[in-house]
Design a protein around this nucleic acid. Sequence first.
RNA 1: GGUCCUGUGGAGCAGCGUGGAGUGCUCGCCGCCCUGUCAAGGCGGAGGUCGCGGGUUCAAAUCCCGUCAGGACCGCCA
Length: 583
Amino acid sequence: MIRTHQAGSLRAADAGTTVTLAGWVARRRDHGGVTFVDLRDASGVVQVVLRESPAAHALRNEFCLLVTGDVRHRPAGNENPELPTGEVEVVVDELVVLSESDTLPLPVDDEQTAGDEVRLRYRYLDLRRSGPAQALRMRSAANRIARSVLHRHDFVEVETPTLTRSTPEGARDFLVPARLQPGSWYALPQSPQLFKQLLMVAGLERYYQLARCYRDEDFRADRQPEFTQLDIELSFVTQDDVIALSEEIIAALWRELAGHQVVAPVPRITWHDAMGRYGSDKPDRRFGLELTDLTDYLRGTEFRVFAGAIDAGGYVGTVVMPGGASQTRKELDGWQDWAKARGARGLAYVVLDAETGQARGPVAKNLSAGQLAGLADAVGAKPGDAVFFAAATDRREAQELLGAARVEIAGRVGLVDESAWAFCWVTDAPMFEPDGQGGWTAVHHPFTAPTDEWADRFEQAPGDALAYAYDLVCNGHEIGGGSVRIHRADVQRRVFDVLGISAEQAADKFGFLLEAFRFGPPPHGGIAFGWDRICALLTGADSIREVIAFPKTRGGLDPLTGAPTPISPEQRAEAGVDTPQTG
RNA sequence: GGUCCUGUGGAGCAGCGUGGAGUGCUCGCCGCCCUGUCAAGGCGGAGGUCGCGGGUUCAAAUCCCGUCAGGACCGCCA
């Protein structure tokens, strides 16, 4: 090393020693005869003092320096309690400018921040700031903690291919042309799902991987085209074994990185309860505000919007907005626009007068006196509250609208405790959901095992059948999901039948997995954690971009490298992109 | 694919509603001064295709249309 110490490590006890430091000019304060430079390296910042030094005046922000000098106590009264190194300073004897810096395109400054595009374009400068740098270090620590838990349990870390064939996740694949097989293409894996199941057949028993996954879909704040899962699979286990291991990992992460004790066991709620109480399969349980099912209460109503839904076997429910009666007409109308932006027809409401508790609003006059009289008690509302209604033939559609309203209300009313960590498992998810064309599609993936109660009869009522599938939810974010897998050929065959997948199609798409399952496959199950989101939660970041070293923009571009780029005609020909499909 | 927000010297913003000279703020940059600062300070200075294209108008950063880029949400994504 060309230095002897780390800048941020110097303390009063180091006074009197001669040190050599290397780092960047974070800030300079030039007083003419004396110049102070805050020298920053990865460990932090220390003040260095240059006296009567012509070279000092030429220093600029982010010059890279090598300095040698004596550590000494700062003069009495000049200590800086804001800095860990604030008791000392380094009086420079020798200054070497290792490299200079152009005028910076963005401020390398913890106090100021730039726009996303500039930050990503110059990500290497953005990462010199303590916040972004800290996020990457936190992620590294998270990786280490998870690995240490898993290795304690004898897990084997295995790398699986990234050039592979399409996996059954259902998203669009990223494709890579195969030069040696013109006209054929690799797919980048959407997850290592099939490989980890093959590793169970291989007898590894306990596998994990911090796996890069690729899905060619539109972005969100919590979505990137390439993202990372902590992928885990175990043989000879039940759902409870996977959950217990997961809780051990999560508890270790939150204990070490957030100073938070995750109370085990983490509460479990069934998928149907989650939908009924929270209108979401990833409920934010930092606040209450549960939904009320009013389908039976309102049965026989004359109000056609509700009666239509109820008579068709649908659902009418409510969510209460505490204090919502004080909203202006404009604000209440705003909820209609909010609902319409979500694809709903609207969001009916009743406000309860703050003084009298009397129900008012457009819907109120459509309900009977008796229904209005008991409404507040039925939904748990008080005078001064607003009650929002959603009605639909499709129960889930109405529940999801109310669930979204619930989250929106909590935000507006200030019910969310930002310092809370509310974990829960959502279990017993449905195996299938309608595919919109009269058939069924797998809610999880087609290898998810039915629960014991449904194992013999899931095809009799596919819409009601439940699976050994479980999602781990934290503060309304799904941070992990997994399932027990099917290991019996006959069960797998019956699932494919429900999904309308013929033997030929199955053989074509994942025949290699089915073939493997002919050779004594062990019962197995696993889970995959959304590693980017978990790291974002642990660092308090709003977007997973903050915990990815070189993220892409919403348009899938990397402003730093300029990727993706056009290819030359030569590359095009060589890659065989235009070779027609043969065979 | 849809809805919405944003785009103004190197960075972050204001200006736009109600059109009237590229107007303003903070930081940075350049020069000079300055020996105890720590977001140092003082004086002076440079730096602009108001994202791009078109339209309306005597006149457009400002109004209209289109387009590009960034972001949030819906669809989509197990």
